[in-house]
Amino acid sequence: MLQLQGIELALPNGNGGNNNGLSPVLRGIDLTLEEGKFYAITGPNGGGKTSLARLIMGIYRPTAGHIFWRGEEITGLSITERAQRGIGYAFQQPPRFKGLRVRDLLELAAREQPSDPNGSLLRRLCHSLRSVGLCPEDYLEREVDASLSGGEAKRLEVATLLLRKVQLVIYDEPESGVDLWSFDQLLRVILERHRRGGMTTAVITHHEQVLLQADEIILIAEGEVKARGPRAEMWPLITDRARCRWRRSCEEENDEAGCTR
């Protein structure tokens, strides 16, 4: 079980004058993710979904609050320590590396998980690539640099997570950049992995198809958890545009930047 208690997060806003240059990004987050459930996290752009995931992974440190994972407080633990405790995160924008090959990255991801005796490491790497629709013969030796397309990089990111030994995994918009024809397969792989691994899965998404698979949906906006609950309960709220009051409008009347002056 993952528990967030009273989480506040402020990040540098590049505007030194305001609040010591920090902007509140997450506010008063109390949230529990239960073992074995499949969660969808959704909400408007800039609402704080990625920040929440990065906070769970240890990439950001909260300005207040506590995080517990399986009974242990992990608030002060590093990214590495959290990874070693079975927490995984697939980046919204996977970084690129000069010189690192796809196989190098996959090997790093696979190293915690002992190979089963009749399957070689290479077999596992190839299998993970194939399951996200990348042919090993085309990709294994390629560099994870800027030459990969956006969709290719996103799929590789999922393949990397498939190889890891994780009990909590957060995918950040796995659908983004992935073509229409491949997305079904990618979602199927994520679901299969979830069921087989018996892990806790959270998918940050704007995609109806993913939301429809979730046990529970968590709605995040303006840095807060606005609503959460079983899919059936949440569905009317999510699909009713009029009720999404937190979608900030940018009408000319509230022109704070002075564009029309």
């Binding site: 992974m57 990439i59 590093s78 990214i79 590495t80 990874a83 070693q84 995984g88 995160y89 980046f91 996977p94 970084p95 690129r96 590396f97 000069k98 010189g99 690192l100 090959r101 190098d104 790093l108 991801a109 190293r111 915690e112 990397t160 890891r164």
Partner: peptide, 23 residues
């Protein structure tokens, strides 16, 4: 890049070495 490798369980030192070796 460092953060990404650390999320795979590498220590910061291991992550640096991996990045340099690749480069």
């Amino acid at each position: 890049q460092l953060i990404k490798l650390m999320t795979l369980g590498l220590t910061e030192k291991e992550a640096i070495e991996t990045i340099l070796r690749g480069f």
